[in-house]
Write a protein that binds this DNA or RNA. Structure first.
Length: 567
RNA sequence: CGGGACGUGGCGCAGUUUGGUAGCGCACAUGACUGGGGGUCAUGUGGUCGCCGGUUCAAAUCCGGCCGUCCCGACCA
């Protein structure tokens, strides 16, 4: 590929609309251009990166005996009504009508179409298991597209779907996909974690998200450094370790005038925040419900909203109503003799000699102990809080670390969710009609391209891993066309490389060296060969690998050297 | 959708407060010089200032409406 006849519109300035590394560098390096909100054109270099990611995806997915199909992007609304998702999906689903005023939508995912394909064409358990996938364009009318191609509305995704006669078979494919995804992300040289997560609108059975660790990720991931435990923070279980210490203090009611916050309480009574307890009041089905947490912990609203009798979505009770039910202001509530039902976080349940509100304005209790001062039912002990850095991992492997991650993949066991609503059945070995079990497996291709840059870049440009770089080597000819020696040498190297099947971007433009170097940095191809008059006097060229290697190599040795390094 | 910001040649921006005939840098074209990290000089091309309406002798600037884009939140590959 010659630079002079392709389109690589690099940018000197940082585009005004771009904030994060991947967005800035994809724009500046001439990989993408924005068309509209959440809509991007992939330019020649960008397409090469995508194609290479797709090639890796195909290789690894094909190994699982999955087979590639290609389904329509525009889909009949009828199918979506059948699965009930015409309503459930909400405005994310871009709907439209054709000239006959029939409903259609742009596909955000393909469960309906694949299930329809399956039910019309597969009738016997003997044809199972069966896994089909595609690499195709999706459209989700995101509430807020952002970060360039990391959260765009139109994007390319690998989506796979498997069909099974029993759970054992489904589980085998689910594990195979887990392995395949791990292989793909490893080949992309990414630091990633497979994490526990919520299923969202697709299905809430067993599922696993794949996250590329990066500070710009939209999710927080809690993981163990020594085991494979990892969980999306929105799901991560908070556990409490240790037994309850024996009570050593006596229950005392102390005056705490005007103290309404935990920080104020800590200061006023000079107690460690870990020994303080706060009580939040939320709306319940029959009456308000108290949620008792340690002072330094944060309520996990999703967990709380799922508790029996708690209203979802979680709603805090108004202060005036709190006084009506509890008899004091929100800064003095505590579990001891609380007049409404309450739940206690696991970390609070193991506390002894703690401090909490006295359910009376301007008073708190110190030296509080469960069962001596207030009975604690085991059913009331629940996981209510967000995990924090250093919490014990639920698998007992040690402290948790928390990092942000970019969700690039998600695998689910769907069970019969779609086969039931859409009546996808096969005959089993007894001749009875049964709903098939399904799994689905998504992997964001365009998002991966951005995620790679988020993890692999420095101040001056992307550092593409060799397997997905837009080319393997960037050949820079300096001072063309003035120096015929340089032109001849560069042309010769270009031909040699091309003959060897090496992918090369050949900068044959009549540009100043500085321009060529700057562009090469912005493009980020891992190997670079620079040919200039200065080196040619000694019959050498410059050979470079990313930022860590830069040596002079003799002209006739440079191609063999590169071939050797490429393996 | 709630909160915030922005919209002026291809890109990045100034000008808007205080209305008066649209400017800078880069890019682009031509020429000269230069030639290993976005070089210099000269000449030149390119904008109905997001759109519609209003106020005014006069609107990029003031007023109203609309559209678009970005950032923070709820949602997701």
């Amino acid at each position: 590929m010659k630079f002079s006849n392709t389109l690589i519109p690099t940018l000197r300035d940082i585009p005004a609309n771009a904030e994060i590394a991947s967005h800035i560098l994809l724009l500046r390096g001439g990989f993408i251009r924005q068309l509209g909100s959440g809509l991007y054109t992939w330019l020649p270099l960008g397409v090469r990166v995508l194609q290479k990611i797709e090639r890796i995806v195909r290789e690894e997915i094909n190994k699982t005996d999955a087979h590639e199909v290609l389904m329509p992007f525009v889909q009949p609304g009828e199918l979506w009504k059948e699965s009930d998702r015409w309503e459930v999906m909400g405005p994310d689903l871009l709907r439209m009508q054709d000239r006959h005023e029939n409903d259609y939508c742009l596909s955000p995912t393909h469960e309906e179409v694949i299930t329809d394909l399956f039910r019309k064409n597969v009738k016997s358990y003997r044809q199972l298991p069966c896994t089909l996938y595609q690499i195709a364009t999706k459209f989700r009318d995101e509430i807020r597209p952002r970060f360039g191609v990391l959260r765009s509305r139109e994007f390319i995704m690998k989506d796979g779907y498997s069909f099974h006669i029993d759970e054992k078979s489904l589980h085998a494919t689910y594990l195979a996909m887990h392995d395949a995804y791990s292989s793909i992300l490893s080949r992309l040289a990414l630091d990633f974690r497979s994490v526990e997560a919520h299923g969202g609108v697709i299905g809430d059975d067993e599922n696993r998200e794949f996250h590329v660790l990066a500070d710009t990720g939209e999710d927080a991931i809690a993981y163990s450094k020594v085991s494979s435990y990892a969980s999306n923070l929105e799901k991560a279980e908070a556990v409490a370790t240790g037994d309850v210490a024996t009570a050593s203090e006596t229950l005392t009611k102390v005056s705490t005038p005007n103290i309404r916050t935990i920080n104020g309480l800590v200061e006023c009574l000079d107690v460690p925040i870990e020994r303080t307890v706060k009580t939040l009041i939320v709306q319940g089905r029959d009456s308000p419900i108290g949620l008792v947490l340690r002072g330094d912990h944060e309520l996990h609203e999703i967990k709380a909203a799922r508790l029996p009798n708690v209203l979802s979505p979680l709603t805090f009770t108004k202060e005036s109503e709190v006084r009506h039910h509890v008899g004091c202001n929100v800064g003095s509530i505590g579990p001891v003799q609380l007049q409404i039902p309450y739940y206690v976080d696991r970390s609070v349940a193991v506390l002894s000699d703690f401090v909490c509100g006295a359910n009376e304005d301007d008073f708190h209790l110190t030296g509080v102990n469960w069962n001596r001062d207030e009975s604690l039912q085991s059913a009331a002990i629940q996981d209510l809080r967000k995990v924090v850095e250093g919490d014990p991992a639920p698998d007992g492997s040690g402290p948790l670390s928390i990092q942000r991650g970019i969700e690039v993949g998600h695998i689910f066991k769907l069970g019969t969710k779609y086969s039931h609503t859409m009546n996808a059945t096969v005959l089993d070995e007894r001749g009875e009609s049964v709903n098939v079990l399904m799994g689905c497996y998504g992997l964001g291709v365009t998002r991966l391209a951005a995620a790679v840059i988020e993890q692999k870049h420095d101040e001056i440009g992307p550092l593409w891993p060799l397997e997905i770089a837009p080319a393997q080597v960037h050949l820079v000819a300096l001072n063309v066309p003035r120096s015929s020696e340089v032109v001849n040498a560069a042309n010769h190297v270009y031909e040699q490389l091309t003959t060897q099947g090496i992918e090369v971007l050949y900068d044959d433009r009549n540009e100043r060296p500085g321009v060529k170097f700057a562009d090469a940095d912005l493009i980020g191809i891992p190997y670079r060969i620079t040919i200039g008059e200065r080196g040619l006097k000694e019959n050498t060229v410059e050979y470079q690998h990313q930022r860590e290697l830069k040596v002079d190599v003799s002209l006739d040795q440079v191609v063999p050297t590169l071939l050797q390094d490429l393996g």
